[in-house]
Design a protein around this nucleic acid. Structure first.
Length: 283
DNA sequence: CATATGTCCTGAGAGC
DNA sequence: TGCTCTCAGGACATAT
């Protein structure tokens, strides 16, 4: 499930082969699948982008953005199972969109591949794009937010801190996997109401967020048991081997080695934590 | 307004 | 063996 580290890995992976290139074609590919959500339709997408240069490739929260010299921007949301690929898809039938570039280099296309098809590809105008990135729909980026950002955001909701960390309007980029990892490093119980966090506790979450996300980026993200996430060369990420608690119910806590990691459900999502290291009341 | 739940989708695994 | 059922969760829509 692509969260900030996986999407950052996609961006860094395609950037050297996409930035500065001229778009020669955009087409729908794959076969038996229901078409994924495209906005606007493929025709106007192609009309507005073919012949344009890709001015920049960057990440906004959990989205990949390819900005064109016209000011329009492709915004790709991988959601659960989407990937950006330079070649060699996990399977050919779930390829969804291909961007082909003019000229001949090592890679001349980039693909969006998506097994479940929940992802979206949109071509936004400069105005629409500005609304997305600065319209209050997304909180500060989890990788660059300040400690004060996080304290203020957490103070604004009574929801459990784990659930609050998943709200992209509060903090952008954290998903279900990294929320558990971050809270374990920060030694915070996931059910604590966010507004009840003390300032030092919120600061621990801030520091843990940076630590965990940067480490996960270094390892090129997490490839879970279902093998869905792959980097742009269709290789596994490596951070799953460093997971402390996620999907490790009944295994010993890597910190205290005494308690077993337990799994609870919050807002219909799995949360993993150590009941000893992440006690609600600390002494 | 804040919070909670339902929906989309496919493949893996369980159970009979 | 082969069927049906449940589960996984990011973001958005709808309900309370």
């Amino acid at each position: 499930m692509p969260e900030l580290p996986e999407v950052e890995t996609m961006v860094r992976g395609i950037r050297p082969f996409v930035e500065g290139r001229t778009i020669a074609a955009v087409r729908v590919c794959g076969c038996r699948c229901r078409p994924i959500t495209l906005f606007p339709g493929l025709k106007s997408m192609a009309r507005r982008s073919v012949g344009r240069h890709v001015a920049a490739v960057r990440r906004i929260a959990k989205r990949v953005v390819m900005e064109l010299d016209s000011g329009d921007a492709f915004v790709i949301e991988p959601r659960m199972t989407g990937l950006m690929l330079l070649h060699d898809p996990p399977d050919p039938e779930h390829l969804r969109i291909e961007w082909r570039f003019a000229g001949r280099r090592e890679f001349n296309s980039v693909w969006f591949w998506d097994r479940r098809g929940l992802g979206t590809v949109r071509l936004l105008t400069a105005v629409e794009f500005a609304e997305l990135s600065g319209g209050g729909l997304l909180g500060p980026d989890a990788l660059t937010m300040t400690a004060n950002d996080l304290r203020e955001r957490m103070a604004a909701t009574r929801r459990p801190v784990k659930v609050a960390l998943l709200d992209q309007r509060l903090v952008a980029g954290i998903g279900n996997l990294y929320a558990s990892e971050i809270l374990h490093v920060a030694r915070i119980h996931p059910a604590v109401p966010a507004a009840r966090l003390t300032a030092p506790q919120a600061d621990r979450i801030h520091a843990a967020t940076r630590l965990v996300l940067e480490d996960a980026i270094r390892h090129e993200g997490s490839t879970l048991g279902d093998g869905t996430y792959r980097n742009v060369l269709n290789q596994n990420g490596g951070y799953q081997n460093s997971h402390r608690v996620y999907d490790r119910a009944d295994e010993p806590c890597p910190t205290c080695r005494r308690a077993k990691v337990i799994r609870i459900v919050q807002a219909q999502r799995s949360t993993f934590f150590c009941p000893v290291c992440q006690r609600k009341r600390q002494h």
